[in-house]
Design a protein around this nucleic acid. Structure first.
Ligand SMILES: [Zn+2]
Ligand SMILES: [Zn+2]
Ligand SMILES: [Zn+2]
Ligand SMILES: [Zn+2]
Lengths: 143, 143
DNA sequence: GTAGACCTGTGTGTAAGACACAGGTCAATA
DNA sequence: TATTGACCTGTGTCTTACACACAGGTCTAC
């Protein structure tokens, strides 16, 4: 398969295929005309990479995993360890986004009944200045 | 205030202050020794920028908002429009992360009872290869 | 033969800073 | 007074996972 064929076959872009190829995650055969051809082994490796990306592995993770396997070792322990790390990170980001989303919609609501105001020398926008974030840390009994 | 003082005062880093300064979002005064000094107006602008960032505005959004205000116009309509856009994006990313998180923990669970396996020429890691993503689109009645 | 659709490599851009580096400045101390 | 150490200055590069641009080569059809 050629670059674009491979990309289309799995719903991605030629640039993605080329990117993995640049990183040597894919190793196509170069034909006489200079074109890259991906034999079945490379096609299934591409499938593997896409699956791993879907599971939240970084491209660098995948490089490590592939390298491990290329040395004949079972990559499974590495895979298990990495996904735990990535899951923890994802959890953190997830919570951060949750809070952000809440703040954003809270702001939108708070602003609904506020008028527009011209800026002053000390205030760019009163909407943003006046925004009160929700529960900055547990609303503990303060004072 | 000097760079590091400003950064510390608001719990950020000198690099962040310098970054906004490079972008001309902050306009410190240069003293004879070459050091940058942030007068009160710049300090409150920094506070403004940080608030806006917390609300999910991009730095480029903030540049637009500040520019609008610097022309004496009320930035409020722009602010309202931008936050709606950003909220929609955040919502999308949030859902994507939710799905990713589910897939990751599902994988972790699916893999618990699976043995490690050495790689073959066509398989880098059977764990990743065998993973079945959850509900790829509503589990509609297929066929 | 030539147009149009594909391919090639390479280089640059993205967001929001983090980090590095070579050198200047300041306060306190030996 | 000289030196140390902590701060500051500019500038430049790095990060992620590609997307996009560009100049030029190649293939297919007409
Ligand atoms: Zn190796
Ligand atoms: Zn306003
Ligand atoms: Zn303007
Ligand atoms: Zn494995």
């Amino acid at each position: 398969m050629k670059v674009s064929e491979l990309a289309k076959a799995y719903g991605t872009t030629p640039d993605t295929v080329r990117y993995y190829t640049r990183l040597k995650l894919l190793n196509p055969i170069k034909s006489e005309n200079g074109y890259k051809y991906y034999p079945p082994t490379e096609v299934s490796r591409f499938k593997f990479i896409l699956s791993a990306r879907q599971l939240g592995f970084s491209v660098s993770d995948i490089q490590q995993i592939v390298d491990e396997a290329s040395h004949g070792k079972a990559a499974c322990p590495l895979v298990r360890a990495l996904i735990k790390e990535r899951l923890a990170e994802t959890e953190k980001q997830f919570l951060a986004m949750l809070k952000l989303r809440e703040n954003m919609s809270s702001a939108l609501e708070q602003w609904e009944c506020k008028e527009d105001k011209a800026p002053t020398s000390t205030m760019v926008c009163h909407l943003i200045d006046s925004f009160e974030p929700l529960n900055e840390e547990e609303p503990s009994d303060e004072k």
